[in-house]
């Protein structure tokens, strides 16, 4: 009896250790976010305390050598590029998902999906490279100079479209087939079924995809850096070159010191804040869907 309880005890001891090591690992993974935020703050601290956050909006321009760090042109560039691409990519992605699920014959649907998955796997630097050597000259021939907001929007569209399409497709596939069947049995045409039944019932999934796509567009660096021209300015039209927050970091981080470096970390914090907002929105929506489905 003693022996038996000893075995139980030693077993539970190992189990205990096992559980606690898992807890520790999980804590390190979960704590990573905190660590990232702490270090971003730590590096931006000198500028935040000595000069103040407001100055990145009120300075006269982006002249690091003259201690003038205005981020607003970069912020406008980032937002314009991201919003422009989402306006293109959201309808295209959702229509693509509809194509796969309702319109394409099975073999085409399979290969189309495969193609989109492949597109999702192409690294951003390759998109940027293709944009630089193919797309930018095409735009330049149409309306110089070429590297522009438009080029950035088009490349970003290609890059975030797979995210939107794959999530939209997944949520459309999750719809009970009986909805489609009973809509068809009521004599609803294909588009009527899509418009009245499919899109409204899967709207949360579609929105989730759009928010995640937007988050990706905001954070994208390499492709934007390679096709947008990187001129610090508020663009007056779509053919103007722009510089985004991300591109700014990538371009200047290598030689930035002191306040210059601090400001770059502040722009990192700004990006992170934007992205966190959109990811949280997407997660709330996703939570709502699972909740609605289990109901």
């Amino acid at each position: 009896m003693t022996l038996f309880s000893n075995i139980i005890l030693s077993h539970s001891k190992i189990d205990f250790l096992f559980l606690w090591s898992l807890r520790a690992l999980a804590l390190s993974a979960g704590g990573l976010l905190l660590l990232v935020i702490v270090f971003l703050f730590h590096e931006s601290w000198p500028y935040l305390t000595q000069i103040g956050l407001a100055n990145v909006f009120t300075d006269h321009g982006w002249f690091p050598t003259e201690q003038s760090y205005q981020l607003t042109p970069m912020i406008s560039g980032t937002i314009l590029a991201a919003c422009g691409s989402i306006f293109l990519a959201a309808p295209l992605g959702i229509l693509s998902a509809l194509f796969c699920h309702f319109y394409a014959p099975p073999f085409l649907s399979y290969w189309y999906r495969r193609m989109i998955e492949l597109l999702a796997g192409i690294p951003s630097v390759v998109f940027g490279f293709w944009g630089l050597v193919v797309l930018v000259p095409v735009i330049a021939a149409w309306h110089p100079p070429g590297p522009s907001l438009l080029a950035g929007i088009l490349i970003l569209t290609l890059m975030i479209l797979p995210t939107i399409m794959l999530i939209a497709h997944a949520s459309i596939r999750q719809l009970p087939t009986i909805y489609i069947q009973s809509a068809t049995a009521l004599g609803l045409s294909q588009w009527a079924t899509i418009w009245h039944i499919v899109l409204p019932t899967s709207r949360i999934g579609l929105l989730t995809g759009i928010f995640l796509g937007l988050a990706r567009a905001l954070g994208e660096t390499m492709a934007i850096l390679m096709v947008c021209g990187n001129v610090v300015q508020h663009p007056s039209h779509i053919f103007d070159p722009i510089r985004t927050l991300t591109a700014n970091i990538a371009l200047e981080m290598a030689y930035a010191v002191d306040h210059h470096r601090s400001v770059l970390f502040i722009s990192g914090l700004l990006l992170m804040g934007l992205v966190i907002a959109f990811v949280s929105l997407a997660e709330i929506l996703r939570y709502k869907t699972t909740y609605a489905l289990t109901q």
Partner: peptide, 17 residues
């Protein structure tokens, strides 16, 4: 939750970190 947010953090920010 923190992992979900981490998944959305732009890679350039990871670079900064």
């Amino acid at each position: 939750g923190s992992l979900d947010v981490l998944a959305g953090v732009p890679s350039i920010v990871f670079g900064l970190f």
